[in-house]
Design a protein around this nucleic acid. Structure first.
Lengths: 190, 190
DNA sequence: TCCTGAATAGACTGATTGGTCTAGAGAAGA
DNA sequence: TCTTCTCTAGACCAATCAGTCTATTCAGGA
């Protein structure tokens, strides 16, 4: 019998795709084993806490990606470049709306209470980092947070509409509108 | 033994709240019977097709409410009044973000494929009706659809953020921003 | 008053669930 | 080569799942 050896990061990425496709409750252990080709033995070896630990690991994995590619640049780099990078990263990550935001989906799900802290932390940090970049870019502090909230909400809404309408163009169209609003705010800033 | 008699519309409303709370996959029959206080006998009497028929009835019920309270007025009434009514209806229906959009949640869920047609129809009609009202209000046809898409996406995103952040104020704040954008577009229209 | 049929309650069933456990494969160091 | 330890395979388990079925309760018409 051939033995394919995985490492934990591989397992997390595979499991993430299953949760993305089926949702937390919809992803049964048999569904996960079938799609990932990982046996129950492997899965429980990597995630002794079972499904809940798998989901927590997946959320942490997504959060880490955004922290490195989006949040940290927003907190660190020059505002216009960091914000431009954010839009590009978002479009690439969500594959023009064909991929969903697991953290957003979990927020709407019955799963919300179980993972409240990481879900809240992810969005909170995103909004705070973006608002901070806007302020550093010259936007009035009182305007920065509403603008940031609007941009993040716009992205989540765009993902919902892209999935609902199965329209490949709408995600990019909506992103372009949100992006233009932020750039207009930066352009009129002192 | 006391016998509490329900009618189908009552059953639909009760079941809708359970799906809202637990999601489609997360709502087991025992969970539904426990929360609605309807026995399996009653449930399968009203919905012989089981869970799937329950969910379809619930989606149709939500769609009918929006059709009557939002879409038809947008298609029929004077644009500024109809659009104002839309914002008020949305804020009231979603209870300032404490209630979620079942149709939006199903769109992100693994349930999406099962209910693709009603989900797509709901959002499509909303966007078309709103864009039509904007055009009748003097907005350039080329601008109306992007504006309408942006408004509907903004509402869905606001629901996601309200749930994720557990912030009672953010939903109203985001709605006010989207509303102001539409009103600005109408005000500058000829 | 007796029917009829809609509505209800909940025991029951086979399939599936999340999770456990044993057996063994294979890589790495001694 | 032998030993050790990580990882894999999948049989197995109790609990729960969606769905069926029978018995019963009522309300309304005849």
């Amino acid at each position: 019998m051939t033995r394919t050896v995985f490492e934990k990061p591989d397992a997390i990425a595979l499991v993430a795709e299953v949760f993305r496709e089926l949702g937390y409750e919809g992803a049964s252990m048999s569904g996960i084993t079938a799609r990932t080709r990982l046996s129950k033995g492997s899965l429980y070896h990597f995630f002794p806490g079972g499904k809940e630990e798998m989901a927590a690991a997946v959320l942490a994995h997504v959060d880490a990606w955004f922290a490195a590619e989006v949040f940290a640049p927003l907190e660190r780099d020059a505002p216009p470049a960091a914000i431009a990078r954010m839009w590009d990263a978002v479009d690439a990550y969500f594959r023009s709306g064909r991929r969903i935001c697991l953290i957003g989906a979990f927020a709407l799900d019955g799963t919300r209470d179980r993972f409240a802290a990481p879900i809240q932390g992810y969005f909170q940090r995103w909004i705070t980092a973006l608002a901070g970049a806007l302020v550093r870019g010259g936007v009035a502090p009182g305007m920065a947070t509403p603008l940031a909230e609007d941009a993040v909400a716009g992205i989540q809404g765009a993902l919902t509409l892209a999935r609902a309408l199965r329209d490949d163009g709408i995600f990019a169209r909506l992103l372009a509108q949100s992006r233009a609003r932020l750039e207009a705010a930066l352009a009129t800033a002192p």
